[in-house]
């Protein structure tokens, strides 16, 4: 079973800079239509944590480049 992962994005910390989207190899992140408290459109993880066909491998590239440390990464 290929290594699966998922991420959690703190939408209030995120400023919608989209760097995570640029580096994600699986295209699993997009800009949300919602607005956060500061009026940014935060980044949004497109997959469900529990779903079987998630593409996210938990490689952490998104979290590494996030300037606002808004992304936590999990394996499993």
């Amino acid at each position: 079973m290929k290594n699966k992962g998922f991420i959690r994005i703190n939408e209030e910390l995120c400023k919608g800079c989209a760097l995570c989207i640029e580096v994600c190899p699986k295209g699993s992140i997009r800009i949300s239509k919602k607005l956060n408290i500061k009026g940014y459109h935060p980044a949004e993880y497109t997959e469900k944590e529990k779903s079987k066909n998630r593409k996210c491998t938990g490689c952490s590239l998104c979290a590494i480049i996030c300037p606002d440390i808004a992304i936590e990464v999990f394996h499993g």
Partner: peptide, 12 residues
């Protein structure tokens, strides 16, 4: 939260 602009390198 930081006061830095979106995408700024300081946060990293």
């Amino acid at each position: 939260t930081t006061h830095y602009c979106p995408g700024c390198g300081h946060g990293i």
